[in-house]
Design a protein around this nucleic acid. Structure first.
Lengths: 226, 226
DNA sequence: ACAGCACGTCACAGTTTCATGACACAACAC
DNA sequence: GTGTTGTGTCATGAAACTGTGACGTGCTGT
């Protein structure tokens, strides 16, 4: 499943939560804020893939936020508004927005528009998959858990990628040794176990009760989404 | 004023003429056709800047025309339709369209949407691209940081351009050696590292904590905007 | 309960990897 | 020729990574 790091700015709590839920269901990872200032701060530190801005915001409005984003970056921006006035649309798009969507919007439509813009914006389509909170970007070789980046060492990353390549399948130790390490290692070492444990310590909320990497006693390990 | 070569496909004569007139007034140069086949023929010979497709067309419909365009080109496409059904929108965008506009549409709005899409489509192919303070002019082969020109040697520039061509992606040393140098170098040399350090020394405010070119231990380097 | 086994956990030292700066040499302009 | 610039290589040290083995824990069948 392709996912995007979406920054949502919407002051109305019910709309915000509904959108957040809907977009998360579509497989996106969403961070939301209430004001434009907060969003701009966020963008300066951690760059999202796309920004969805309500136009009517307390403080600086969405169109102005969009202008300020454009000054520093060419991040994709979708403006969201209750007013579908023609003039508003023109002003919004001229402020640099990539799309202008009138509320209420069907989640599938918003999702399709997000994907259309990302398709155009990402020259090199990044190749990401998400499993709940866990997002693995194979192009950037980045792993994030609940939007927080997790640092994995090369071997840990190769192991996780190998497991993820076969979701739901049990992979035995011999297979993993050959796939992740070179074949010079002996089969009875605790090497794979140790590495699995290291990965678990980083990606599992409770490593003792793993959600992602499950032990199948006597056979090996299985990666399966929660 | 910036103008675009627009290819308009619309079978209803009155709508076609109205749009043609309106878009011409906005400063665009418009060529129009009645059927998708004609339009596809035109595209194969002379590539327009953007295609506006009515969905309901005699013969192959607009969505299918869009799919066929996508098979051969990344041309910007706007779908135009009288039906604003949510499902239609999703199907249209998934066929590869960049926007989906419901008729009747105010000419100024259509114009604004055309410009928004062209802006995005051009920035990907544009000669100048900015990442925060860093601006890279691929046409003039100049790099500026906070408006101050940075002098990069040819090799350094080729390396930076190669990294920037794949923003966010990790590129390994072997790939960079082949892309930036010729293939006559041995794979295990520290050549790439040394060149990365030289580029960092010039573009990174604090080379020890790089903002643009990140080391991904065991894999390679990744350029990502701050 | 018990032995036997499979797996989890942990610390640490040897190894690998990378940043840094120095240096030699080639290319080039003057 | 002479100085300048660009480029590849190398040594060095610091930091990060990783295999290993000893031991702990929990499961399984008798």
């Amino acid at each position: 499943m392709r996912v995007a790091g979406i920054l949502l700015v919407e002051d109305d709590p019910s709309v915000r939560m509904a959108l957040e839920l809907a977009l998360t269901r579509q497989g996106h990872s969403v961070t939301s804020y209430v004001t434009g200032e907060e969003a701009l701060d966020h963008i300066r530190s951690r760059r999202p893939e796309i920004v969805i801005l309500d136009v009517m915001l307390p403080g600086i409005d969405g169109v102005e936020v969009c202008r300020r984003i454009r000054k520093i970056d060419q991040l994709p921006v979708i403006l969201l508004t209750a007013r579908g006035d023609d003039l508003d649309v023109v002003v919004g798009l001229e402020a640099g927005a990539d799309d202008y969507v009138v509320k209420p919007v069907e989640p599938r439509v918003l999702d399709a528009r997000i994907r259309a813009i990302l398709r155009r914006a990402e020259s090199a389509a990044s190749d990401r998959i998400g499993f709940g909170d866990l997002v693995i970007d194979r192009g950037a070789l980045k792993v994030t858990l609940a939007n927080k980046e997790i640092h994995l060492t090369p071997t840990e990353l190769r192991l996780l990628l190998e497991l993820v390549r076969h979701p739901g399948q049990v992979l035995n130790r011999r297979y993993l040794l050959r796939a992740v390490w070179d074949h010079t290692h002996v089969a009875d070492s605790r090497l794979v176990d140790a590495c699995v444990q290291r990965v678990r310590a980083k990606i599992e909320p409770r490593p003792a009760e793993p959600v992602f990497i499950h032990t199948v006693r006597g056979f090996g390990y299985r990666f399966s989404p929660p």
